[in-house]
Design a protein around this nucleic acid. Structure first.
Length: 501
RNA sequence: GGCGUGUUCGUCUAGCGGCCUAGGACAUCGCCCUCUCAAGGCGAAGACCACGGGUUCAAAUCCCGUACACGCCA
């Protein structure tokens, strides 16, 4: 049974890189009918916040990635979360979690970590270190200056009992360091990179327990992955260098290590690690900008992974079915918002009408377009929705149905202020007043007939009509627009425009 | 500074020794379709496969070195 996990530190929002890591873990678990676990690594008390936990879980849910074990995502009841629901309004029930390997918040597992430090102490694999931060810094500096590797020299390893007692007497609290083997090498068999070997002499005696009693990242991570029965650790490239040390910890504790897969980094357009400087870095910002979770998944899925046929678009469960660690890229990838935007348009067009409306609603509302309206939003969004690339583009394409016509420069000077337009507008207004039925097809016939009768080119008529009705030179198909607008508004707008000419 | 990883069109990538005068996608440009916009169709431009050496009848593909980028130690 395959078990994967995503283990965020709640010290900020979920950024693009984290989102992709989550996605790959989720895809891999789902692909192999395994279990996807979420664990909150909140041992950095100074920087961890509840708001971050909420923001991160919200982001993951918005992406449509549900987890089987971890923090409880619903306010009440044990029901399954419905991650596809846009808005993800229900707040996370902080502190509660579910699953057989909990708790899933590291702060609640402190005793477990300490227990295993004691286990290592009993085996003589761990020793107290009384070095102060300043000493450590000085050591490191000296090492770099002498072009030696900047690792702890292990001076506390050989402390006598008397020296330890002296330190204790002076009130110093020790951290605990793991005695790393100093010979041979440690190889990581990475699922993406293949075998990567590290010289053990370069592995430093890492701290497993801080003086304050809390675990360090590398130790807690090992203990938790073991106790949570994680089989595949899929994580960012930045952890590859930590892996040999972790492997030694697994061995010392007598545990079998999981398999590892290290993902390449995501870069900004300038080649540096993607961050706020490059614009939106938080996935919630993409939600706000009008991107669809499905498009986000599709794009992120392809950032650093591909199929041999270079397929671009994946809908529904297709990503889950196709995903494979073997297709993962070793080299870093630059995040390209233009491509994401294109993909979003493709996904938007794939949406059914009801789904489109559901996703568009918050954006329409934000623009003050709240139903019931005349013409119904249903109708106008159906006319224009599929032309958009972002949900946030929709209001701007339909708002002219609802507010007073404002003429763009191009519409007024370029299209309306032309000889004969005024008369034509009034003629058509008359036509519309009498049109029966007031429906797209019939209206088109009628107006085309008018063009023929007056020997006018359709473009000479259609363009000014659109400009007069909407104030713009681009928009919905003319007759669909007239039908939606209705007889009253259409006639009114044509006459009003004519009056300005 | 040490160690590790990486380097194919502007970007994401295909490619696992001959099919490569390097394929696809986004972006760009042009044409077509068309009542506009969008979508769609067709096409163009864009990569001496980071660089330098090898191995081989044959290398983007294998080996070595260099450069650069990124990561970890921090």
């Amino acid at each position: 049974m395959i078990r994967t996990r995503f283990a965020p530190s709640p010290t900020g929002f979920l950024h693009i890189g984290g989102a992709r890591t989550t996605l790959y873990n989720w895809l891999f678990a789902r692909r192999h009918r395994g279990t996807f676990v979420l664990r909150v690594e909140d041992t950095d008390e100074a920087r961890s916040t509840e708001d971050s936990v909420t923001a991160i879980l919200d982001s993951i849910r918005w992406l449509g990635l549900d987890w089987d074990e971890g923090p409880l995502p619903m306010v009440s009841g044990g029901g399954t979360p419905s991650p596809e629901t846009p808005g993800s309004g229900s707040p996370v029930d902080l502190g509660r979690d579910r699953g057989p390997y909990g708790p899933y918040y590291q702060m609640k597992r402190i005793e477990l970590y300490q227990k295993h430090v004691r286990q290592l102490a009993l085996a003589g694999l761990v020793y107290p270190c009384y070095c102060a931060k300043e000493e450590l810094d000085a050591m490191r500096k000296a090492a770099v200056a002498q072009k030696r590797p900047a690792i702890y020299d292990g001076r506390c390893r050989k402390l006598t009992d008397r020296q330890k007692a002296e330190h204790e007497a002076s009130g110093r609290k020790p951290s605990w360091r793991f005695s790393m083997p100093k010979e041979g090498e440690t190889a990581v068999d990475d699922l993406i990179r293949g075998r990567v070997s590290f010289d053990n002499r370069l592995l430093q005696d890492l701290v497993v327990q801080k003086a304050a009693g809390g675990p360090t990242y590398n130790f807690a991570c090992v203990v938790d992955d073991h106790h949570m029965a994680i089989t595949h650790v899929i994580r960012g490239d930045e952890h590859l260098s930590n892996t040999p040390s972790q492997l030694q910890l697994y061995a010392a504790l007598g545990w079998e290590a999981p398999k590892f897969a290290h993902l390449s980094m995501i870069l900004g357009p300038d080649g540096s690690k993607l961050s706020k400087r490059h614009g939106a870095a938080s996935v919630l910002e993409y939600k706000a900008a009008g991107f669809l979770p499905a498009a986000m998944r599709n794009y992120l899925g392809l950032l650093g992974w591909s199929t041999t046929d270079s397929r671009q678009l994946f809908f529904g469960d297709e990503l889950v079915e196709a995903f494979d660690l073997a297709g993962c890229q070793k080299n870093p990838a630059v995040f390209d918002q233009a491509k994401l935007t294109w993909m979003n348009g493709e996904h938007l067009r794939k949406l059914g009408h009801d789904e489109l409306m559901r996703h568009a609603e918050p954006f329409l509302e934000a623009a003050g377009l709240v139903g019931p309206l005349d013409p119904p939003l249903d109708k106008t969004v159906a006319l224009e929705g599929e032309k958009c690339r972002l949900l946030a583009d929709i209001p701007g394409r339909v708002d002219f149905f609802y507010k007073d016509v404002e003429f763009t420069e191009k519409a007024m000077a370029g299209v309306l202020k032309r000889p004969g337009v005024k008369e034509m507008l009034l003629d058509v207004a008359g036509l519309l007043e009498a049109a029966q039925p007031f429906a797209e097809k019939a209206l088109e016939e009628k107006i085309r007939g008018y063009c023929e009768a007056r020997a006018l080119k359709t473009s000479q008529v259609f363009h000014p009509l659109r400009a007069a009705l909407s104030g713009r030179t681009e928009g919905p198909t003319l007759f669909g627009m007239i039908e939606a607008l209705g007889r009253g508004k259409s006639v009114g707008r044509l006459r009003a425009a004519a009056a300005l000419l």
